[in-house]
Amino acid sequence: MISDLFSLTVLLGIISSGIRLATPYLFASIGEAFSQRSGVLNLGVEGQMILGAFTAFYVVMNTENLLLGVLAAMGVGALMGLAMGFVSITLQAQQGISGIGFYLFGLGMSNLLFQLLVGTVETVSGFPKVPLPILSDIPVIGKLFFDHNILVYLAFLLVPIASFVLNKTNLGLKIRSVGENPEAADSLGVSVSKVRYFTTIFGGAMSGLSGASLSIALLNVFQLGMTAGQGFIAVALVYFGAWRPWGVLAGALLFSLVNGLQLWIQVLGINIPSEFAVMMPYILTIFVLTLSRSKYGAPSALTKPFEREG
C-alpha cells in the first residue's frame, strides 16, 4: 500500500503536520542560533521550553489573557537565559554541562509548579486559528498555509527577520564578530559580554515562546514532561542548519515532515514496525548531522569563554 502515500490527502496531511510540528522548533532553534553565533552553546533549551510552556499555560488558565501568557513565557525563558549567561559568560563555566543543568532545573521546576499550582491535567482556550483574508481562500494551498494560529505565522515570519538581523544589521555584525573573533571585536570596542548576554537572553525568550506555542496554541494543555526532548532536537537543528536561519528552517521542516510521514505510514498500515517508523526523523537528523560537511563552519569561538587580556 506504498502507493497510498502519494494521494493528495496524504500529501496535504504530511505538509500540514510538518508545519505544525515545525513551529516550536523554529522559535527555539532560531533563538539558539543567535546565542551560538555569539559563541554561547545553550543546551538548556529544553528546560526553558518546558518552563515556558508551563508559565504560558498557568497564566492563561488564570487570566485568560493570551498575550500575557506569551509575554510571561518569554519572560521566564529570558530569565533562564540570563542565568545561563551569568554562569557561562561571567562565571565562564563549561557551557555543555551548565546547559544540561538548566535543562534539569526547568524540567524539575515545571513538574513542581504544576503539582503545586495546577494539580491535574486541564485544557485552556488558546490561540484560535486565524485564516488570513483572501490568501486562505486559495483552493488547497490556502487551507494548508494560511489557516493557522498566529504563533505559527510568527514562527515562519521569524526566519527572514532573523536572517536579516544577523546578516544585514549592525547588531548582527556584532553578534557574528563576537562569535568568530571576540578579541578583535573587543579591540574595536564591542562589549563581548553585553552581546553574549543579549543573545542568551533572547535565545531564552524564544525557547519560552516555543514552549508557549505548544501549551497555549497548538495543544492548549500542559502535561508533565510534554516537550519530550524537542529542545534537544532544536539544538541539533542549529547545527543542521549551519547556524543560519534559513538552514534552521530547512532542518525543522525536514525533521517535521518526516515525522508527519511516519505517522501516515502507520495510519496507512504500511508494514513497518512502529518502533522503526518513530525513529525515522531522529535517524535522519543524526545521519545528516554526521555527514554534513557544511561550507560554513561553526562560529570559531563557540563554547569558548572570553577573557579580556591584560
Binding site: L12, L218, M226, A228, L263, W264, V267, E275
Partner: peptide
C-alpha cells in the same frame, strides 16, 4: 481501525499530531 504506536509516553505534541493524521484519514 487505525492503530498508531508513537513509542513515547510523554510527547503530547506527537500524540496530537497522530490524532490529526487519523482524523484526516
Amino acid at each position: 481501525v487505525l492503530v498508531t504506536y508513537i513509542n513515547n509516553f510523554s510527547d503530547v505534541a506527537l500524540a496530537a499530531e497522530t490524532a490529526e493524521t487519523q482524523i484526516a484519514a
